[in-house]
Design a protein around this nucleic acid. Sequence first.
DNA 1: GCACGCATTTTGATTAGTCAAAGTATAAAT
DNA 2: ATTTATACTTTGACTAATCAAAATGCGTGC
Lengths: 221, 221
Amino acid sequence: MATSTVEDYLKTILLKSTGDELVSMGKIAEGLGVVPGTVTTMMKNLAEQALIEHYPRQGVRLTERGRLIALNVLRKHRLIETFLVATLKMDWSEVHVEAERLEHAISDAVLDRIDALLGNPETDPHGDPIPSRQGKLDTGIYDTLATCAIDAPVRMVRVTDQSSDFLQFAERQKLIPGETIRVLTRTEVAGSVTVQLDNRQVVTLGFRQAGSIQVASAGTG
Amino acid sequence: MATSTVEDYLKTILLKSTGDELVSMGKIAEGLGVVPGTVTTMMKNLAEQALIEHYPRQGVRLTERGRLIALNVLRKHRLIETFLVATLKMDWSEVHVEAERLEHAISDAVLDRIDALLGNPETDPHGDPIPSRQGKLDTGIYDTLATCAIDAPVRMVRVTDQSSDFLQFAERQKLIPGETIRVLTRTEVAGSVTVQLDNRQVVTLGFRQAGSIQVASAGTG
DNA sequence: GCACGCATTTTGATTAGTCAAAGTATAAAT
DNA sequence: ATTTATACTTTGACTAATCAAAATGCGTGC
C-alpha cells in the first residue's frame, strides 16, 4: 500500500503534468513545499516501485500504475470537497485544506457511498472534473478570462486558483462555475480584465486571476 | 499538535482506564498491537509534554490536558461511526475500522457539522456514549447479560465487543442497542447464557460475549 | 531472607521522510 | 570553446516510531 506521502507525490506529479512532457523536480518540490533534494530521493523510491519513470536531470512521468493511484487520490479529494460543500454546507474556500487530509484516510468503500449520496457528480465545487472510479479524467482544454473572446457570453467552467482568499472573493462576486459572464475589456499593459456578470455587476481582475478562471462558449455543456 | 500516533496512545489509555487506577504498559501495548518497550519509550515522550503522569514500573494516568485530547479523539471516532451508519447506511460491523483512520484526519469544524447533521446524538451505533465537545463523557456502570437478573426484561444499552464477526452475528440476531430482551437461563458450568428477544426469538451466547452486552432495567432511559 | 518469575526499562538497530549544504551536469551566453 | 547560471543529485544528519533482545526492579512464596 502507498503511504499518504507517496500518494501526495503521485497526485502532485499528475497535477503538474501537461501533455506527455516530463515533470521537473522543481515543480514537484514547489507543489509539495519540500526542498528539491527530498524530491530526488523520493523519485528513486517511486521509480523502484514502478510508479514513475525517472529520467535523471530531466524529470519524471507517471507509469500506468502510478497514474491510477494518483487519479484515485484526486477522485477522493474532489468528491470530499463536493461532499463538504453540498452535504455539510461548508464554504468552498475552506474545503481544499480539509480534503487534503481526508483524501488519505477515506476508504474506497466509504467513497463509493459518498459518490452515490451526491448523485455521481462530474465536477467538484471549483469546477474541477472528478476522475471516474475506472480512472478516466476529462482533460478538456478551456479558454480562460485571460484568453477568451471579448464581449461574447461565456459559461464559467472552473476556478483553478485554490487560495482561500481568492475563492472567498470569487464567491462574494458570484464568480462561480455555471454562471454566464462576458469579458468587457482586456488591457495588456495594465494587466487587467473587466467582466460583467449575469446580474450586470462588473468585476475587475488581474491577468493572473483571470487566467485561473476557465470558460466555455455559453451554449456548450 | 499531537501526531496521530500520540492521539492513538492517549485514546487507548483513556479506554483502558478504570476509576483512578494506573494503566499498565502491557495493557497499552496490547491495545495498540506494539511491544511493551515501545510503549515505555512513548510514555516518556508523553510525560514530557504533560499529557500523562508516568510512575515508572507502575503505570500511567492521563493529565487533564491528555484527557481532553483523548476525549476529542473518542468523540470523533464515535461521531464518525454514527455518521457512517446513519447517513451512509454502512453496516455497523465495518465502521470501526474506517473510523480508526478518519478520526485523525477530520477537523473540529467538519466534526461539528456532522454532529449537527446527525442531530447531536448521545451514543454511537454500538451504544457507546459520545463525549461532548466540552469533554464530558457518560461513564455509567451497567449490568451485562452475564450479570443481570434472570427473567427481568432489560433494555440493551451497548455492545462493547468490536470484532466485526460478532457484530455481524449480533445484527442478524437483532441484538442491537435499544432492543428489549430477557435472560432465560445462565449456566455457569457450561459458560452459556440464553436470552429471549422481543420477537420471541431465543439466542445462546458464551459468557464472554454475554459480558460484552450492557443492559439497563427496561424502564430506564 | 533469598530466589524466582514477570513486567518494565534500556539499548542498539531499522525505516520513512525530511533538510542543509556541498558537489555535479548541462544548456545558454559570450 | 570556455564560462556561467541554474537545476539536479548526493551526502550526512536528524526526528518519529518501531522492534528484538538484554538488563533491571520487585512482589511472592518458601
